[in-house]
Design a protein around this nucleic acid. Structure first.
Lengths: 230, 230
DNA sequence: TGAGCCATGTGACCAGTGGAAACATATGCC
DNA sequence: GGCATATGTTTCCACTGGTCACATGGCTCA
Protein backbone atom coordinates (compact mmCIF):
# COMPACT_ATOMS: atom_id res chain seq x y z
CA UNK A 1 0.00 0.00 0.00
CA UNK A 2 1.32 3.43 -0.83
CA UNK A 3 1.32 6.53 1.29
CA UNK A 4 -1.18 5.59 3.95
CA UNK A 5 -2.74 9.00 4.17
CA UNK A 6 -4.07 9.84 7.58
CA UNK A 7 -7.35 11.65 8.06
CA UNK A 8 -7.01 15.27 7.15
CA UNK A 9 -4.27 14.72 4.67
CA UNK A 10 -5.68 15.34 1.21
CA UNK A 11 -5.14 12.29 -0.90
CA UNK A 12 -2.11 12.92 -3.00
CA UNK A 13 -2.36 11.88 -6.64
CA UNK A 14 1.02 13.06 -7.82
CA UNK A 15 4.10 11.26 -6.61
CA UNK A 16 5.76 14.50 -5.68
CA UNK A 17 4.08 16.57 -3.08
CA UNK A 18 4.78 19.99 -4.51
CA UNK A 19 5.48 21.97 -1.36
CA UNK A 20 6.27 19.43 1.26
CA UNK A 21 8.52 21.59 3.30
CA UNK A 22 5.84 24.14 3.95
CA UNK A 23 3.27 21.41 4.46
CA UNK A 24 5.46 19.75 7.06
CA UNK A 25 5.95 22.95 8.99
CA UNK A 26 2.22 23.61 8.90
CA UNK A 27 1.46 20.08 10.01
CA UNK A 28 3.99 20.28 12.81
CA UNK A 29 2.58 23.59 13.96
CA UNK A 30 -0.93 22.18 13.92
CA UNK A 31 0.19 19.16 15.91
CA UNK A 32 1.92 21.41 18.39
CA UNK A 33 -1.28 23.36 18.91
CA UNK A 34 -3.63 20.43 19.11
CA UNK A 35 -1.57 17.62 20.63
CA UNK A 36 1.10 19.50 22.49
CA UNK A 37 4.85 18.98 22.32
CA UNK A 38 4.68 15.24 22.87
CA UNK A 39 2.33 14.83 19.95
CA UNK A 40 4.73 16.54 17.63
CA UNK A 41 6.72 13.68 16.18
CA UNK A 42 8.36 13.52 12.79
CA UNK A 43 6.16 10.61 11.89
CA UNK A 44 2.95 12.31 12.89
CA UNK A 45 3.82 15.44 10.96
CA UNK A 46 4.69 13.43 7.88
CA UNK A 47 1.49 11.41 8.22
CA UNK A 48 -0.50 14.59 8.40
CA UNK A 49 1.20 15.86 5.28
CA UNK A 50 0.30 12.62 3.57
CA UNK A 51 3.83 11.38 3.26
CA UNK A 52 6.21 8.82 4.71
CA UNK A 53 8.24 9.95 7.69
CA UNK A 54 11.46 9.40 5.81
CA UNK A 55 10.44 12.01 3.25
CA UNK A 56 10.86 14.57 5.98
CA UNK A 57 14.60 14.08 5.88
CA UNK A 58 14.74 15.33 2.30
CA UNK A 59 13.77 18.74 3.63
CA UNK A 60 15.09 18.77 7.16
CA UNK A 61 18.31 17.16 8.29
CA UNK A 62 16.81 16.32 11.67
CA UNK A 63 13.74 16.69 13.79
CA UNK A 64 15.45 19.58 15.49
CA UNK A 65 15.66 21.39 12.18
CA UNK A 66 11.95 20.94 11.66
CA UNK A 67 11.33 22.29 15.13
CA UNK A 68 13.55 25.22 14.34
CA UNK A 69 11.39 26.01 11.33
CA UNK A 70 8.28 25.83 13.45
CA UNK A 71 9.87 28.05 16.08
CA UNK A 72 10.85 30.51 13.38
CA UNK A 73 7.26 30.70 12.25
CA UNK A 74 6.34 31.29 15.88
CA UNK A 75 8.70 34.24 16.14
CA UNK A 76 7.17 35.77 13.05
CA UNK A 77 3.73 35.44 14.62
CA UNK A 78 4.95 36.95 17.84
CA UNK A 79 6.61 39.77 16.00
CA UNK A 80 3.38 40.59 14.19
CA UNK A 81 1.46 40.50 17.46
CA UNK A 82 3.95 42.82 19.12
CA UNK A 83 3.79 45.26 16.24
CA UNK A 84 0.03 45.30 16.36
CA UNK A 85 0.02 45.95 20.09
CA UNK A 86 2.44 48.77 19.57
CA UNK A 87 -0.09 50.71 17.58
CA UNK A 88 -2.48 50.70 20.53
CA UNK A 89 -0.43 52.57 23.11
CA UNK A 90 -0.06 56.33 22.99
CA UNK A 91 3.03 57.04 25.05
CA UNK A 92 6.11 54.84 25.16
CA UNK A 93 5.26 53.58 28.61
CA UNK A 94 1.79 52.55 27.51
CA UNK A 95 3.32 50.94 24.49
CA UNK A 96 5.66 48.87 26.60
CA UNK A 97 2.75 47.84 28.76
CA UNK A 98 0.71 46.89 25.71
CA UNK A 99 3.59 44.87 24.35
CA UNK A 100 3.96 43.03 27.60
CA UNK A 101 0.27 42.18 27.45
CA UNK A 102 0.66 40.96 23.89
CA UNK A 103 3.72 38.95 24.82
CA UNK A 104 1.99 37.25 27.72
CA UNK A 105 -1.11 36.75 25.63
CA UNK A 106 0.91 34.97 23.00
CA UNK A 107 2.24 32.65 25.69
CA UNK A 108 -1.33 32.02 26.80
CA UNK A 109 -2.78 31.45 23.34
CA UNK A 110 0.03 29.29 22.07
CA UNK A 111 1.86 27.86 25.05
CA UNK A 112 3.42 25.02 23.13
CA UNK A 113 4.82 27.37 20.52
CA UNK A 114 6.02 29.69 23.22
CA UNK A 115 7.90 26.89 24.92
CA UNK A 116 9.35 25.69 21.68
CA UNK A 117 10.58 29.18 20.95
CA UNK A 118 11.83 30.17 24.36
CA UNK A 119 11.69 27.18 26.62
CA UNK A 120 14.35 24.72 27.66
CA UNK A 121 14.13 22.37 24.72
CA UNK A 122 14.24 25.10 22.14
CA UNK A 123 16.39 24.45 19.08
CA UNK A 124 19.75 26.14 19.31
CA UNK A 125 19.61 29.48 17.57
CA UNK A 126 23.28 29.25 16.79
CA UNK A 127 22.60 26.19 14.67
CA UNK A 128 19.77 27.78 12.70
CA UNK A 129 20.59 31.29 11.50
CA UNK A 130 17.08 32.01 10.17
CA UNK A 131 15.68 31.18 13.57
CA UNK A 132 18.23 33.42 15.20
CA UNK A 133 17.31 36.22 12.81
CA UNK A 134 13.61 35.84 13.51
CA UNK A 135 14.23 35.89 17.24
CA UNK A 136 16.46 38.89 16.97
CA UNK A 137 13.94 40.83 14.91
CA UNK A 138 11.27 40.09 17.47
CA UNK A 139 13.29 41.17 20.46
CA UNK A 140 14.44 44.27 18.68
CA UNK A 141 10.91 45.61 18.92
CA UNK A 142 10.97 45.09 22.64
CA UNK A 143 14.35 46.65 23.13
CA UNK A 144 13.36 49.65 21.07
CA UNK A 145 10.23 50.15 23.10
CA UNK A 146 12.25 50.12 26.27
CA UNK A 147 14.75 52.50 24.77
CA UNK A 148 11.93 54.88 23.88
CA UNK A 149 10.80 54.79 27.48
CA UNK A 150 14.23 55.79 28.57
CA UNK A 151 14.52 58.46 25.91
CA UNK A 152 11.30 59.89 27.27
CA UNK A 153 13.39 61.16 30.10
CA UNK A 154 12.25 59.10 33.01
CA UNK A 155 15.11 56.69 32.96
CA UNK A 156 17.36 56.65 35.92
CA UNK A 157 21.11 56.69 35.83
CA UNK A 158 21.00 52.93 35.48
CA UNK A 159 22.53 51.72 32.25
CA UNK A 160 19.95 50.89 29.63
CA UNK A 161 20.74 47.23 29.58
CA UNK A 162 19.87 47.02 33.23
CA UNK A 163 16.40 48.46 32.91
CA UNK A 164 15.78 46.43 29.81
CA UNK A 165 16.76 43.31 31.66
CA UNK A 166 14.38 44.05 34.47
CA UNK A 167 11.51 44.66 32.10
CA UNK A 168 12.32 41.70 29.93
CA UNK A 169 12.79 39.35 32.86
CA UNK A 170 9.50 40.42 34.35
CA UNK A 171 7.40 39.97 31.27
CA UNK A 172 9.16 36.77 30.35
CA UNK A 173 8.63 35.48 33.85
CA UNK A 174 4.94 36.29 33.66
CA UNK A 175 4.64 34.71 30.25
CA UNK A 176 6.38 31.59 31.48
CA UNK A 177 4.07 31.36 34.44
CA UNK A 178 1.10 31.75 32.16
CA UNK A 179 2.35 29.27 29.60
CA UNK A 180 3.05 26.63 32.20
CA UNK A 181 -0.24 26.90 33.96
CA UNK A 182 0.75 24.26 36.42
CA UNK A 183 2.97 26.74 38.21
CA UNK A 184 -0.07 28.84 39.02
CA UNK A 185 0.26 28.15 42.69
CA UNK A 186 0.00 31.70 43.82
CA UNK A 187 -3.64 31.95 43.24
CA UNK A 188 -3.94 34.83 40.85
CA UNK A 189 -5.69 32.48 38.49
CA UNK A 190 -8.91 34.39 38.86
CA UNK A 191 -7.35 37.38 37.18
CA UNK A 192 -7.20 37.24 33.43
CA UNK A 193 -3.61 37.32 32.21
CA UNK A 194 -4.00 40.66 30.47
CA UNK A 195 -5.13 42.46 33.60
CA UNK A 196 -2.49 40.70 35.61
CA UNK A 197 0.21 41.70 33.18
CA UNK A 198 -0.95 45.29 33.10
CA UNK A 199 -0.87 45.42 36.86
CA UNK A 200 2.51 43.86 37.24
CA UNK A 201 4.06 46.03 34.59
CA UNK A 202 2.57 49.01 36.33
CA UNK A 203 4.13 47.85 39.55
CA UNK A 204 7.40 47.37 37.81
CA UNK A 205 7.09 50.82 36.40
CA UNK A 206 6.33 52.52 39.62
CA UNK A 207 8.45 50.34 41.77
CA UNK A 208 7.34 47.98 44.37
CA UNK A 209 7.59 50.32 47.25
CA UNK A 210 8.03 53.94 46.38
CA UNK A 211 6.95 56.49 43.83
CA UNK A 212 3.43 56.98 45.08
CA UNK A 213 2.79 60.67 45.12
CA UNK A 214 1.63 61.60 48.58
CA UNK A 215 3.19 58.66 50.31
CA UNK A 216 6.51 59.00 52.01
CA UNK A 217 9.23 59.11 49.45
CA UNK A 218 11.33 56.04 49.65
CA UNK A 219 14.52 57.61 50.81
CA UNK A 220 15.90 54.47 52.25
CA UNK A 221 15.68 52.79 48.90
CA UNK A 222 17.24 55.47 46.79
CA UNK A 223 20.36 56.26 48.70
CA UNK A 224 22.46 53.41 49.93
CA UNK A 225 19.35 51.41 50.55
CA UNK A 226 21.46 48.42 51.21
CA UNK A 227 22.58 49.25 54.64
CA UNK A 228 19.18 50.00 56.10
CA UNK A 229 19.44 48.23 59.42
CA UNK A 230 17.00 45.45 60.17
CA UNK B 1 25.20 -12.67 31.84
CA UNK B 2 23.40 -11.22 34.82
CA UNK B 3 22.92 -7.59 35.69
CA UNK B 4 25.26 -6.01 33.23
CA UNK B 5 26.54 -3.43 35.64
CA UNK B 6 27.62 -0.21 34.00
CA UNK B 7 30.70 1.62 35.09
CA UNK B 8 30.16 3.33 38.37
CA UNK B 9 27.56 0.86 39.54
CA UNK B 10 29.07 -1.17 42.35
CA UNK B 11 28.82 -4.82 41.49
CA UNK B 12 25.86 -6.18 43.33
CA UNK B 13 26.36 -9.53 45.03
CA UNK B 14 22.96 -9.92 46.59
CA UNK B 15 19.99 -10.51 44.37
CA UNK B 16 18.00 -7.84 46.11
CA UNK B 17 19.38 -4.35 45.96
CA UNK B 18 18.45 -3.18 49.41
CA UNK B 19 17.49 0.41 48.73
CA UNK B 20 16.82 0.57 45.07
CA UNK B 21 14.31 3.35 45.22
CA UNK B 22 16.75 5.76 46.75
CA UNK B 23 19.51 4.53 44.47
CA UNK B 24 17.37 5.15 41.42
CA UNK B 25 16.54 8.68 42.46
CA UNK B 26 20.20 9.37 43.13
CA UNK B 27 21.19 7.88 39.80
CA UNK B 28 18.55 9.88 37.98
CA UNK B 29 19.65 13.06 39.69
CA UNK B 30 23.24 12.39 38.79
CA UNK B 31 22.29 11.73 35.18
CA UNK B 32 20.29 14.92 35.11
CA UNK B 33 23.30 16.88 36.29
CA UNK B 34 25.86 15.26 34.06
CA UNK B 35 23.97 14.32 30.91
CA UNK B 36 21.09 16.74 30.96
CA UNK B 37 17.39 15.97 30.58
CA UNK B 38 17.83 13.87 27.46
CA UNK B 39 20.33 11.63 29.18
CA UNK B 40 17.92 10.88 31.96
CA UNK B 41 16.23 7.71 30.77
CA UNK B 42 14.74 4.97 32.86
CA UNK B 43 17.20 2.53 31.40
CA UNK B 44 20.23 4.71 32.07
CA UNK B 45 19.18 5.30 35.67
CA UNK B 46 18.60 1.60 36.22
CA UNK B 47 21.93 0.75 34.60
CA UNK B 48 23.65 3.19 36.88
CA UNK B 49 21.99 1.60 39.87
CA UNK B 50 23.20 -1.76 38.65
CA UNK B 51 19.80 -3.10 37.86
CA UNK B 52 17.57 -3.96 34.93
CA UNK B 53 15.33 -1.20 33.69
CA UNK B 54 12.24 -3.24 34.45
CA UNK B 55 13.17 -3.28 38.12
CA UNK B 56 12.45 0.43 38.14
CA UNK B 57 8.79 -0.28 37.75
CA UNK B 58 8.70 -2.11 41.07
CA UNK B 59 9.32 1.24 42.72
CA UNK B 60 7.85 3.76 40.34
CA UNK B 61 4.73 3.23 38.28
CA UNK B 62 6.15 5.30 35.44
CA UNK B 63 9.08 7.39 34.38
CA UNK B 64 7.06 10.44 35.31
CA UNK B 65 6.84 9.19 38.88
CA UNK B 66 10.61 8.82 39.00
CA UNK B 67 10.97 12.33 37.67
CA UNK B 68 8.56 13.54 40.31
CA UNK B 69 10.77 12.04 42.99
CA UNK B 70 13.80 13.74 41.51
CA UNK B 71 11.94 17.03 41.33
CA UNK B 72 10.87 16.62 44.92
CA UNK B 73 14.48 16.22 45.93
CA UNK B 74 15.19 19.37 43.95
CA UNK B 75 12.60 21.34 45.87
CA UNK B 76 14.13 20.23 49.13
CA UNK B 77 17.52 21.45 47.92
CA UNK B 78 16.05 24.74 46.80
CA UNK B 79 14.26 25.16 50.08
CA UNK B 80 17.48 24.64 52.01
CA UNK B 81 19.25 27.14 49.76
CA UNK B 82 16.54 29.73 50.28
CA UNK B 83 16.60 29.28 54.02
CA UNK B 84 20.35 29.70 54.08
CA UNK B 85 20.16 32.87 52.03
CA UNK B 86 17.56 34.21 54.38
CA UNK B 87 20.02 34.25 57.21
CA UNK B 88 22.29 36.58 55.28
CA UNK B 89 19.99 39.56 54.84
CA UNK B 90 19.33 41.98 57.67
CA UNK B 91 16.12 43.73 56.70
CA UNK B 92 13.23 42.11 54.90
CA UNK B 93 14.04 43.85 51.65
CA UNK B 94 17.61 42.62 51.77
CA UNK B 95 16.32 39.19 52.60
CA UNK B 96 14.07 39.17 49.57
CA UNK B 97 16.98 40.27 47.45
CA UNK B 98 19.19 37.57 48.89
CA UNK B 99 16.55 34.98 48.25
CA UNK B 100 16.20 36.09 44.66
CA UNK B 101 19.94 35.70 44.27
CA UNK B 102 19.78 32.24 45.78
CA UNK B 103 16.85 31.32 43.56
CA UNK B 104 18.60 32.43 40.42
CA UNK B 105 21.80 30.82 41.56
CA UNK B 106 20.03 27.52 41.98
CA UNK B 107 18.78 27.83 38.42
CA UNK B 108 22.34 28.50 37.31
CA UNK B 109 23.96 25.71 39.26
CA UNK B 110 21.38 23.09 38.48
CA UNK B 111 19.56 24.18 35.34
CA UNK B 112 18.30 20.71 34.51
CA UNK B 113 16.83 20.26 37.96
CA UNK B 114 15.33 23.71 37.81
CA UNK B 115 13.62 22.93 34.54
CA UNK B 116 12.41 19.61 35.80
CA UNK B 117 10.93 21.32 38.82
CA UNK B 118 9.47 24.40 37.22
CA UNK B 119 9.75 24.04 33.50
CA UNK B 120 7.22 22.95 30.92
CA UNK B 121 7.75 19.21 31.15
CA UNK B 122 7.56 19.14 34.93
CA UNK B 123 5.60 16.26 36.44
CA UNK B 124 2.11 17.28 37.44
CA UNK B 125 2.04 18.27 41.06
CA UNK B 126 -1.56 17.23 41.31
CA UNK B 127 -0.54 13.66 40.52
CA UNK B 128 2.24 13.54 43.11
CA UNK B 129 1.20 14.96 46.49
CA UNK B 130 4.68 14.75 48.02
CA UNK B 131 5.99 16.81 45.14
CA UNK B 132 3.23 19.32 45.62
CA UNK B 133 4.00 19.52 49.31
CA UNK B 134 7.68 20.09 48.67
CA UNK B 135 6.92 22.82 46.15
CA UNK B 136 4.46 24.48 48.45
CA UNK B 137 6.89 24.47 51.36
CA UNK B 138 9.51 26.08 49.17
CA UNK B 139 7.30 28.83 47.87
CA UNK B 140 5.97 29.53 51.31
CA UNK B 141 9.38 30.91 52.24
CA UNK B 142 9.22 33.28 49.32
CA UNK B 143 5.71 34.44 50.03
CA UNK B 144 6.52 35.03 53.66
CA UNK B 145 9.55 37.09 52.73
CA UNK B 146 7.44 39.25 50.49
CA UNK B 147 4.80 39.59 53.18
CA UNK B 148 7.46 40.76 55.59
CA UNK B 149 8.49 43.41 53.10
CA UNK B 150 4.96 44.66 52.99
CA UNK B 151 4.56 44.52 56.75
CA UNK B 152 7.63 46.72 56.96
CA UNK B 153 5.36 49.53 55.86
CA UNK B 154 6.60 50.38 52.45
CA UNK B 155 3.93 48.48 50.60
CA UNK B 156 1.54 50.47 48.52
CA UNK B 157 -2.20 50.11 48.48
CA UNK B 158 -1.78 47.32 45.96
CA UNK B 159 -3.11 44.04 47.20
CA UNK B 160 -0.43 41.74 48.51
CA UNK B 161 -0.92 39.16 45.83
CA UNK B 162 -0.15 41.78 43.24
CA UNK B 163 3.21 42.77 44.62
CA UNK B 164 4.07 39.16 45.30
CA UNK B 165 3.28 38.33 41.71
CA UNK B 166 5.51 41.07 40.43
CA UNK B 167 8.40 39.96 42.57
CA UNK B 168 7.89 36.29 41.85
CA UNK B 169 7.48 36.83 38.12
CA UNK B 170 10.63 38.87 38.00
CA UNK B 171 12.86 36.48 39.82
CA UNK B 172 11.39 33.50 38.08
CA UNK B 173 11.89 35.23 34.76
CA UNK B 174 15.50 35.92 35.59
CA UNK B 175 16.06 32.37 36.76
CA UNK B 176 14.52 31.04 33.60
CA UNK B 177 16.71 33.23 31.48
CA UNK B 178 19.73 32.06 33.40
CA UNK B 179 18.76 28.40 33.31
CA UNK B 180 18.16 28.46 29.57
CA UNK B 181 21.39 30.17 28.69
CA UNK B 182 20.47 30.10 25.06
CA UNK B 183 18.04 32.94 25.61
CA UNK B 184 20.87 35.17 26.72
CA UNK B 185 20.49 37.35 23.69
CA UNK B 186 20.41 40.60 25.51
CA UNK B 187 24.05 40.64 26.20
CA UNK B 188 24.22 40.90 29.92
CA UNK B 189 26.22 37.73 29.87
CA UNK B 190 29.28 39.52 31.12
CA UNK B 191 27.55 40.19 34.39
CA UNK B 192 27.55 37.35 36.83
CA UNK B 193 24.02 36.23 37.62
CA UNK B 194 24.19 37.24 41.25
CA UNK B 195 25.09 40.82 40.48
CA UNK B 196 22.52 40.91 37.74
CA UNK B 197 19.84 39.60 40.04
CA UNK B 198 20.71 42.05 42.76
CA UNK B 199 20.51 44.89 40.29
CA UNK B 200 17.25 43.85 38.78
CA UNK B 201 15.63 43.25 42.12
CA UNK B 202 16.83 46.66 43.16
CA UNK B 203 15.24 48.12 40.08
CA UNK B 204 12.07 46.26 40.81
CA UNK B 205 12.18 47.63 44.28
CA UNK B 206 12.68 51.19 43.31
CA UNK B 207 10.67 51.09 40.18
CA UNK B 208 11.82 51.43 36.69
CA UNK B 209 11.21 55.07 36.25
CA UNK B 210 10.32 56.92 39.38
CA UNK B 211 11.56 57.23 42.89
CA UNK B 212 14.62 59.18 41.94
CA UNK B 213 14.68 62.21 44.16
CA UNK B 214 15.04 65.25 41.98
CA UNK B 215 13.64 63.71 38.83
CA UNK B 216 10.14 64.52 37.73
CA UNK B 217 7.52 62.36 39.39
CA UNK B 218 5.84 59.98 37.00
CA UNK B 219 2.39 61.50 36.92
CA UNK B 220 1.30 59.91 33.68
CA UNK B 221 1.78 56.44 34.98
CA UNK B 222 0.07 56.80 38.30
CA UNK B 223 -3.35 58.05 37.26
CA UNK B 224 -5.67 56.06 35.05
CA UNK B 225 -3.00 54.24 33.16
CA UNK B 226 -5.46 51.45 32.54
CA UNK B 227 -8.04 52.96 30.32
CA UNK B 228 -5.68 54.03 27.62
CA UNK B 229 -7.90 53.94 24.56
CA UNK B 230 -8.49 51.50 21.73
C1' DT C 1 14.05 -25.90 61.74
C1' DG C 2 11.62 -25.75 57.86
C1' DA C 3 8.01 -24.20 54.34
C1' DG C 4 6.23 -21.22 51.65
C1' DC C 5 4.61 -16.41 50.71
C1' DC C 6 5.58 -12.35 48.44
C1' DA C 7 8.47 -8.36 47.57
C1' DT C 8 11.85 -7.62 44.43
C1' DG C 9 14.71 -8.35 40.29
C1' DT C 10 15.25 -10.54 35.33
C1' DG C 11 14.49 -11.48 30.33
C1' DA C 12 11.86 -11.29 26.56
C1' DC C 13 8.78 -8.80 24.33
C1' DC C 14 5.84 -4.74 22.47
C1' DA C 15 4.78 -0.41 19.91
C1' DG C 16 6.64 3.84 18.95
C1' DT C 17 10.59 7.10 18.12
C1' DG C 18 14.42 9.52 15.31
C1' DG C 19 17.41 8.41 11.82
C1' DA C 20 20.17 5.99 7.71
C1' DA C 21 20.38 3.50 3.46
C1' DA C 22 18.95 1.45 -0.73
C1' DC C 23 15.57 1.69 -3.98
C1' DA C 24 11.69 3.90 -6.88
C1' DT C 25 9.66 7.61 -9.39
C1' DA C 26 8.86 11.76 -11.81
C1' DT C 27 10.47 16.41 -13.26
C1' DG C 28 13.16 19.40 -15.76
C1' DC C 29 17.09 20.31 -18.47
C1' DC C 30 20.22 19.13 -22.33
C1' DG D 1 14.10 11.68 -26.42
C1' DG D 2 17.19 10.66 -22.72
C1' DC D 3 19.15 11.13 -18.57
C1' DA D 4 20.63 13.46 -14.11
C1' DT D 5 18.60 14.78 -10.08
C1' DA D 6 15.31 16.02 -6.66
C1' DT D 7 11.95 13.91 -4.13
C1' DG D 8 9.32 10.12 -2.00
C1' DT D 9 9.16 4.93 -0.29
C1' DT D 10 10.82 0.70 1.99
C1' DT D 11 13.28 -1.33 5.06
C1' DC D 12 16.24 -1.43 8.63
C1' DC D 13 18.59 0.12 13.07
C1' DA D 14 19.24 1.35 17.99
C1' DC D 15 16.83 3.20 21.45
C1' DT D 16 12.84 4.48 24.41
C1' DG D 17 8.96 3.68 27.99
C1' DG D 18 6.20 -0.02 29.42
C1' DT D 19 4.19 -5.00 30.31
C1' DC D 20 4.34 -9.75 31.53
C1' DA D 21 5.77 -14.30 32.83
C1' DC D 22 9.23 -16.09 35.42
C1' DA D 23 13.31 -16.37 38.86
C1' DT D 24 15.11 -15.43 43.30
C1' DG D 25 15.60 -15.15 48.02
C1' DG D 26 14.41 -12.67 52.54
C1' DC D 27 10.76 -12.82 55.84
C1' DT D 28 7.13 -14.72 58.68
C1' DC D 29 5.02 -18.30 60.97
C1' DA D 30 4.16 -23.07 62.19
Amino acid sequence: MTARHARGAPRRTTYHHGDLRRALVAAALELLKTEGPDGLTVRAAARRAGVTHAATYRHFPSKDALLAAVAEEGFHSLERALRRSLAAGRGPVEQLQAMAVAYVDFARRRPASFRLMLGPGAPSKAAYPPLEAAARATFAILVEAIARCQAQGRARRSPAIRLATAAWATMHGLATLVADTRVMQMKFADLDPATLTRMVMEDLHRGLCGAVPGSRTSRAATSGGDRSGS
